[in-house]
Design a protein around this nucleic acid. Sequence first.
DNA 1: TTGAAAGCGCTAACAC
DNA 2: GTGTTAGCGCTTTCAA
Lengths: 338, 338
Amino acid sequence: MDKQTITIYDVAREAGVSMATVSRVVNGNPNVKPTTRKKVLEVIDRLDYRPNAVARGLASKKTTTVGVIIPDVTNLYFSSLARGIDDIATMYKYNIILANSDENDQKEVQVLNTLLAKQVDGVIFMGNTITDELRAEFSRSRTPVVLAGTVDPDQQVGSVNIDYESATKDSVELLIQNGHKKIAFVSESHDEPINGIYRLNGYKKALEEASIDFDESLVLQSEYTYKVGEAVYDQITKTGATAAIIADDELAVGVLNAALDRGVSVPEEFEIITSNNSRLTEMTRPQLSTVVQPLYDIGAVAMRLLTKMMNKEEVDEKTVTLPYSIEAKGTTKESPNL
Amino acid sequence: MDKQTITIYDVAREAGVSMATVSRVVNGNPNVKPTTRKKVLEVIDRLDYRPNAVARGLASKKTTTVGVIIPDVTNLYFSSLARGIDDIATMYKYNIILANSDENDQKEVQVLNTLLAKQVDGVIFMGNTITDELRAEFSRSRTPVVLAGTVDPDQQVGSVNIDYESATKDSVELLIQNGHKKIAFVSESHDEPINGIYRLNGYKKALEEASIDFDESLVLQSEYTYKVGEAVYDQITKTGATAAIIADDELAVGVLNAALDRGVSVPEEFEIITSNNSRLTEMTRPQLSTVVQPLYDIGAVAMRLLTKMMNKEEVDEKTVTLPYSIEAKGTTKESPNL
DNA sequence: TTGAAAGCGCTAACAC
DNA sequence: GTGTTAGCGCTTTCAA
């Protein structure tokens, strides 16, 4: 009637040894006589014993589970990071508790709390802003935290990112080189560091170096979905911009298609550079020119960093910046100086 | 030095009550005098006590955690199901342990075992084939299992799907109506039920009813990635097919683009119907005609079903079939009989 | 190399 | 309404 309940005690009795010995065998402790080990293993196999990880977690205070907070699994940018996270986690024998947050501040705090209640050994957070409340929760718990594709100017926790400012600056420069003076900058909320500080700064610097005045009206805000692409394109059009830097690939696809649907030819009449190089960028026609981010690696490196922190290893640099590049595909003209 | 270790015992002492009472308060047990409850809650708040879910899990034999086995989070079809799963899980206070399997038989079994070791209260499985070994593991454990977007002819566990056979038949019929005689059928392995049995049967039936002979050479096999689209398109071309039914959206995008890149106009010279209606189908130009599957709902319903099973509620029908429809977008010609 | 025994932090009878 | 007392299944000293 009950769940199979073969415990370590059953194995011990059957094998004629103590629980401690069985525990040692299960945990690969070398201090066990080979014959004993063999006998125990035989019984384990015969009884089909499977150690209860919950009991183990309670006794050892380690759950070999890490919490992953993600805005939306359905977003290719984040799911690519998640894939890197899970692969490395698996490699180090950890499992992932995945929770969608929709970048909702309240949900993030709540989810973090249930993750901590579940005694995860570490947390990987993806999102945009780290609210003060969240930051407080991070430091209140002694659980290591790493941000993936997310920056916190406060730098108290680990994080893995690319240099967004520089990547954006490069993108804008490419557009300027191609002759554009009015370049729209489209991202989500500008109240958070990645867009509001780094990317926007990169945008401004590029303009400045080219002696183009910064025009506030070219800075647009939009959610990251395909559907709003049309509306955003129309907004861009109204500003008189002839090119756009877009912070999200799915939104970029929407904008690109809106342009095409209106008979505007891309890149001849309108150029676009997007920011993530998710697989979407090669699925459009023309393909989207983009900042190339090592998505999988950001996740993988974040998880690797977390394993070190969970293992209390010395970490030389907990703020890691991965390399990026710019790939001019089909939504930008051939650069004139090639 | 240590992690904060405020236990139920500390709260009990501070509040001058027993652990049992604290436990009752925490668990919302009504048998507590309001004044006592208030006092306990006050202490909980002051001490910032957070119940240890691991200890709770050990004592109660419930972890409020379910395991989710997914081929690849990065695949929009599966991540959409996953989103539905997580939302309903959250609604019912469960968390999700997410594990990528790459549809690798060995990994699936291994992952299932670690999930069971972690004492998950239930499992949702997505994949294609249920190998005998996996099926054996399913029934060996008393843990409820629900398949999402995955069928097992053996029907021993719960499952949520659409009627793939009928959906494919409808798709093929539409193509036949549009004048096609040679229609390629492209899917992954045909050794598993969804493709090899249901979809393929639907394909054959439609041909049969239209008195078109089944031609084995039109049945192609391919992995589900964008990259192989070109190769697959060329293969299709070689068979002389003038239209194709494709089982995966990302692959369909690849095939569509390959056709366009070769100067073939779609749908005038070549028609395509894909199978999942993930957001990708609206991102291409022309948009992909598709079977409309209620992706989010498949996940949501699967999770809802699982909650019932975990709760030992009576389940009238553990094999649920959700409705689908066919949406003729841009990769099929206007149907002549409209 | 092995065993005994004390928890880990909580739930769940059962008694009062 | 509330407290007592066993466990849940395992790890981990500490002795032997």
